[in-house]
């Protein structure tokens, strides 16, 4: 294992999840780590409670699944289901993320500077998810809490059966899902968005964003 600027570098080339994960956990017990050539490994950096991991290049599917406190930075693109079921911590992707980014999350923050695919933030239960570009269809389906910020455009059926939480969209959407309605931005919303944009270095004007919230708290059974 190489050490660059005090950070240990793991080369994942040709290795499997169990092998890389075991080494990563040992390293993380005492410091930060960089993992190179890990795009073929799914489920990497799963369930860690702290520390900082840099994925130097692209990440595989389920990267940072069940993250419980670690900070994960991806220099390239992330695969599908980024940060699945995260409870704490932060994941920042410099490129794009595949389908299903930020699903089932209870907490923490996910930032994708590029675009995210379909079904992002589905069943989000409390995380803050910021997408710097566009998102696909069926995003934020059955979201129960948290904030989803889409700086660009959204596809079809955005926020379908939204229960709680807020969706902020800087651009346009093709269609809204069931149980959604537009609401005016409040001063608190603008302040919150400004904070996100400043924190994550995103150039956007919060005042131009549209806010989407739920229509009814119980859309299924009266």
């Amino acid at each position: 294992m190489a050490v660059v600027m005090g950070v240990r570098v793991l080369d994942a080339n040709g290795r499997d999840l169990r092998s890389v994960s075991r080494e990563l956990k040992e390293v993380m017990a005492t410091g930060a780590a960089t993992v190179r050539r890990a795009a073929h490994i799914d489920g990497l950096v799963a369930g860690l409670k702290g520390g900082e991991v840099v994925i130097d290049g692209d990440g595989g599917d389920y990267l940072g699944v069940l993250n419980d406190g670690a900070t994960i930075r991806v220099k390239g693109n992330a695969g599908r289901y980024l940060g699945d079921n995260m409870t704490r911590g932060m994941i920042v992707v410099e490129g794009n993320a595949g389908d299903g980014a930020g699903q089932y999350c209870y907490g923490g923050t996910i930032v994708v500077r590029g675009n995210a695919g379909d079904f992002a933030a589905v069943m989000n239960k409390g995380a803050t998810i910021v997408i710097g570009g566009n998102v696909g269809d069926e995003v934020a389906t059955y979201m129960l809490a948290g904030d989803l910020v889409i700086v660009g455009n959204a596809g079809r059926n955005l926020g379908n059966y939204l229960i709680r939480g807020n969706i902020y969209v800087g651009g346009r959407w093709e269609s809204l899902g069931h149980n959604t309605r537009r609401e005016d931005l409040t001063a608190e919303d603008v302040q919150k968005l400004s904070g996100y944009f400043e924190q994550f270095g995103i150039a956007a004007n919060p005042a131009t964003f549209k806010k989407i919230v739920r229509l009814s708290e119980k859309p299924f059974y009266k």
Binding site: D42, D61, M123, T141, Y142, R164, F220
Partner: peptide, 27 residues
């Protein structure tokens, strides 16, 4: 459960994060 009080907690009929058997193996 981490859900709002009084809201119907309806689990989806399928996994949103599994599209095929290979995904299930990954899970």
């Amino acid at each position: 459960r981490g859900v709002p009080v009084g809201s119907d907690a309806l689990s989806p009929c399928r996994y949103y994060d599994v599209q095929n058997l290979d995904d299930m193996k990954r899970m």
